[in-house]
Amino acid sequence: MKEQRYIVDTTLRDGEQTAGVAFSLAEKVRTALLLDRAGIYQIESGAPMIGKIEKDTICKIIENRVNSKISTWNRIAESDIRHSLDCCPDIIHISAPVSYPHIYSKLKKNKEWLRNRLRECAGFALEMGYEVTIGYEDASRADMSFVISLTEMLGALGVSTVRIADTVGVLTPSRTTEMIREVHNAADVRIEFHAHNDLGCAAANSIAAARAGAAFIDTTLFGLGERAGNCDMRTFIKSAAQMYDIRPSLADAETLENELITLNR
């Protein structure tokens, strides 16, 4: 029997972040319905802190769900998480920049600050009774010993899954394999992988991650996403379906995209 792998679709979050792309409430709700029907494991539905319309949209998506788990995206800020709580999602995802350039030059903080803040935020969402997944933003340029020590801390806290994000799309398959294995061995948490396609390697890296033990792979419809996009769902499924028990099937993913094109015409 084939091993299982699961799709986390981020069309409605990272996909919508593409410059110039904005979905209306109706478009997001409709897209989520189609994703749910196609059997997507998890739908990253958006970031409640953006504002009222986004929140209403996410609430509607949650109300409609049948098969999929619905997650919301948060920065490492308790205020963001409180906005998520208003929506009662299935999963609260908290994104933490972990590379030194991001911690020191973007946030202008330090490693200790990040570790404490992450512990507080993850702890808060867990106390509220939610499944919590943590995203390591810019993990591909991070110091792996730092990433591993964070993973040990989060595993002990009760975080179910950590997401390794290749935020600027600089990984290759062999480097992806090494990273996934290192983090996987660090603690008893499940691994999710989030690729970007800057060097045209998103699908290959995602396959490498799945082979190295990542149970969850992030994809978007039409490969939407920042810059050259995220991992395209169909391209990933085309390879992955040969090795893994994974939903949707390639045919269902194609139908899904075609339906969206027709609906939004």
């Binding site: 350039p101 920042e226 810059r227």
Partner: peptide, 22 residues
């Protein structure tokens, strides 16, 4: 590919473009 809109990315890029560009 180098169009950028989202708040976090624009903020990061204005501080140091390498934050969000490979």
């Amino acid at each position: 590919i180098f169009n950028v809109e989202s708040g976090i990315h624009v903020n990061g890029i204005l501080k140091n473009a390498a934050n969000y560009e490979p």
